[in-house]
């Protein structure tokens, strides 16, 4: 069901955080393609094939930051779930916010998980690893 070539779409505006994810994947030698959208609108355009860069296929997973400029992560989730073509995409929230409201909103729009970005890189790497492991263990079956 899942196509590894679909890769992961990371929606993140902070370049260091993008680097953190890339580095974590690299540290664990994970080769799954990582696509990055810097804003929620860009991500939506990409997913709908409206952007300049053509997306090869539907992403396996979306890693979503909540604190995004203009369109927030929660708004993106809402739009995603309202779109019939995109509503079944898997989303994991990866954010620095530990706000209960954010957490509740994320789960309301069917996020699979809610990960507060760990402070240390080590812990971050571990968290990413876990996500990837979960993804493939599920897809393997």
């Amino acid at each position: 069901m899942s196509d590894p070539n679909g890769g992961i779409l990371l929606v993140e505006d902070d370049r260091v955080d993008v680097m953190t994810v890339q580095r974590a994947l690299k540290r664990r030698a994970i080769t799954i393609p990582l696509h990055v959208a810097r804003t929620a609108t860009e991500a939506l355009a990409l997913l709908r094939g409206e952007g300049e860069v053509q997306f090869p296929s539907r992403p396996e997973l979306i890693l979503l930051d909540l604190n995004l400029p203009r369109m927030s992560g929660i708004e993106f989730l809402k739009a995603l779930r309202a779109d019939p073509a995109l509503r079944d995409l898997r989303v994991i929230v990866l954010t620095s916010s530990n706000e209960p409201n954010d957490r509740a909103a994320a789960f309301r729009y069917e996020a699979e998980d809610y990960i507060v970005k760990p402070h240390s890189f080590e812990q971050f790497t571990t968290a990413i690893q876990t996500v990837i492991d979960d993804l493939f263990s599920l897809t393997a079956e």
Partner: peptide
Amino acid sequence: AYVASHDLKAPLRGIANLSEW
């Protein structure tokens, strides 16, 4: 205080990661 703390934490985490790298 809460929001500020979160917003303060994000760049701090970046600095920590960058220094480690």
